[in-house]
Amino acid sequence: MKVNWRGVFPAVTTQFNADESLNVESTQRNMQRLIDDGVNGFIMLGTVGENCSLRPEEKLTILRAAKEVAGGKVPILSGVAEFTTAQAADYAKAAEKVGIDGLMVLPGMVYNSDARETVQHFRTVARASGLPIMIYNNPMVYRVDLKTESLAQLAGEKTIVALKDSSEDVRRLNDVHNILGDRFVLFAGVDDLVIESVLLGAVGWVSGLTNAFPKESVRMMELALAGRYEEALPIYRWLMPSLHLDTFPKLVQYIKLAEQIVGRGSEMVRSPRLVLEGEERARVTKIIEEAVRNRPDLDKLPSVA
């Protein structure tokens, strides 16, 4: 299906069994619930989906399973997070054959490429398939920063459609607009900066905590996109302690624990990640349990007709 680059696209967690094997049924079950809760699309195999912890055949298994659930109701994008440009291009081709709807492309993993190398990587992957692409820029985590000047060099690549900015510097959205106009659709990539990002031109949100609080996330984003910021603000402030969890190195463990607490999945992760314990586990649990206790009644909050 054609991707409507707008709204809430949760970065779906990949569910595992106790032995770290894929739990496809649980992953699909979570996806179906997210569809029922009104999300606008899926990002499979992103950071939260533990892309780099899966074998190539497992990634395609997840994509096929996702396609079964989505059934053309919402678009499916896959993260592309490979070690080399050639591997990323091969994966883009394989994902296209599965029949998903788009890609979210990361820089090459492990090696910290410079500006020229980074542009070449994205350009090569963009030309490897016919799928539309969202570039994922997250210099805080991946140590590669696609700045606006480099993004401008990719403006001629027709399949590159959108930018997910996770730089934690929302001023960049202004820079992209001032230099490139509306060439790229802008997506918020940091959960606790989503309203600020919408104010500066983002029309989509790739979200981690939406996995735990989907209805509230969708309502908040709908209000923000309608320019009704004052009405979105109470939801944002309630959700903010949880949204902060998206900015830590252990965001995968934090988000999966949140899912488990609200009854939407398992905290099981794949090594070298380990489930949380001790004070860290208690701290995250307290944040999520307080959010559940104080959860707003959406029936009493404004809606967008």
Rank of each mutant, 00 (worst) to 15 (best):
K2V: 06
K2R: 11
V3I: 15
V8N: 12
P10L: 02
A11F: 06
A11S: 13
A18S: 14
E20Q: 14
V24R: 04
E25Y: 01
D36G: 07
G41H: 01
M44R: 02
M44E: 02
L45N: 02
G46Q: 05
P56E: 12
E57A: 13
K59M: 12
L60D: 03
T61H: 00
T61A: 05
A66S: 15
V69C: 14
A70G: 07
G79K: 02
E82S: 08
T84R: 12
T85H: 09
Q87T: 09
A88P: 13
A89R: 11
D90P: 02
E96D: 07
G108K: 03
G108L: 03
R116Y: 11
V125T: 06
V125D: 05
G130I: 02
Y136W: 06
R143Q: 10
A155C: 04
A155Q: 11
V161T: 14
R172D: 04
N174K: 07
V176D: 13
N178D: 15
L180S: 09
R183Y: 13
E196T: 13
G201A: 06
T210H: 02
N211P: 11
A212C: 10
A212Y: 11
F213M: 09
K215G: 13
E216Q: 15
M221V: 07
L225R: 01
A226H: 08
E231I: 04
P234G: 11
Y236P: 01
W238R: 10
L239R: 08
H244M: 12
V252R: 02
I261D: 07
I261R: 07
V262A: 02
R264K: 06
V269M: 11
P272M: 05
P272K: 06
E277V: 08
E279L: 11
R283K: 15
V284G: 03
T285W: 01
I287K: 05
N294G: 15
P296L: 12
D297V: 07
D299I: 01
A305Y: 05
